[in-house]
Design a binder for these strands. Structure first.
Lengths: 144, 144
DNA sequence: AGAGTAAGTTACAAAAAGTTACTTATATAA
DNA sequence: TTATATAAGTAACTTTTTGTAACTTACTCT
């Protein structure tokens, strides 16, 4: 992990300001970070998008196996929301038994590329994070 | 949003596989995406990290105002977890009334840079997402 | 003595998520 | 000709997580 210079920090702060618009607006102004990210960065959404990035097409029960631990209910809900926001497509084949296939849209693939940069970083540094976490308990708080 | 080529998709799939290790491991193997990302990509954590990237030092009640809508309880919990994982530092000044300052660590700044790439993308395309969302209701499901 | 302040904590209510059983439509086996 | 099986969900109920609002602590200033 590269140490970050003061210059870099200033550059980052400017990017944040630009992104938020009015950073200090606590009024009821629409905030995409809160709205859109709530779904996009959700723990189950991330896994769904990653698995669909690896297996280009997955059926409902296949997804349920890959994204192990997710319930029917939550998988169904997240898929509806991700479809509505345009990350993935749902194709219904009215056979018996029914067949439904989920696939990333171009937009979903575009999102996946950005998401992957973040998850790769997290994977790369997870050892450091876990080491930090172990030390905790003995609080790291400084006192003056 | 640039359309993604088949080659790109293959490249992405390879990165995902590498990241996950065994992509198909649904056993009890440790998965940093599930563990570490659960906190790092949490909706409140994201806002806390972004605001600390803009205002380098914030006290508890200042953070509560910036990250408007968060409760004492959840702010307190998230701060503890983010401190434990090494994203931020807590400094206690035993004055009266007490003063506590939160600040990103170098590790936190490093994470912020990656996070910012993602939130910038989301902000940039939030109009598209919202337009998608409006069309929904009339389901976008294809049928064959 | 009494009020005020920052940083939380605590007890309780509300919302979200997880669990398990059920539904639907039809082909195939008994 | 019932009975069974299957995929993709949905529905009713339980558990967990989150949010709300009041309280605590430790001192200083009026």
């Amino acid at each position: 992990m590269e140490t970050i210079t003061e210059n870099e920090k200033v550059r980052v702060a400017k990017k944040i300001k630009k992104m938020f618009g009015h950073i200090d607006q606590r009024t009821a102004e629409y905030c995409p970070i809160r709205d859109v990210m709530a779904l996009a960065s959700d723990k189950w959404s991330i896994l769904i998008v990653l698995y669909l990035g690896y297996y280009p097409i997955l059926r409902f029960n296949e997804l349920k196996k890959k994204v192990y631990g997710i319930s029917n209910k939550v998988l169904s809900e997240k898929l509806k929301l991700l479809e509505a926001d345009g990350y993935l497509s749902r194709t219904l084949y009215p056979e018996v038994p029914i067949r439904v296939e989920y696939e990333l849209t171009d937009f979903g693939h575009s999102y996946l590329q950005k998401l992957l940069d973040l998850t790769e970083w997290v994977t790369q540094y997870s050892d450091i994070i876990l080491a930090n976490r172990k030390k905790s308990g003995k609080s790291t708080t400084k006192m003056f």
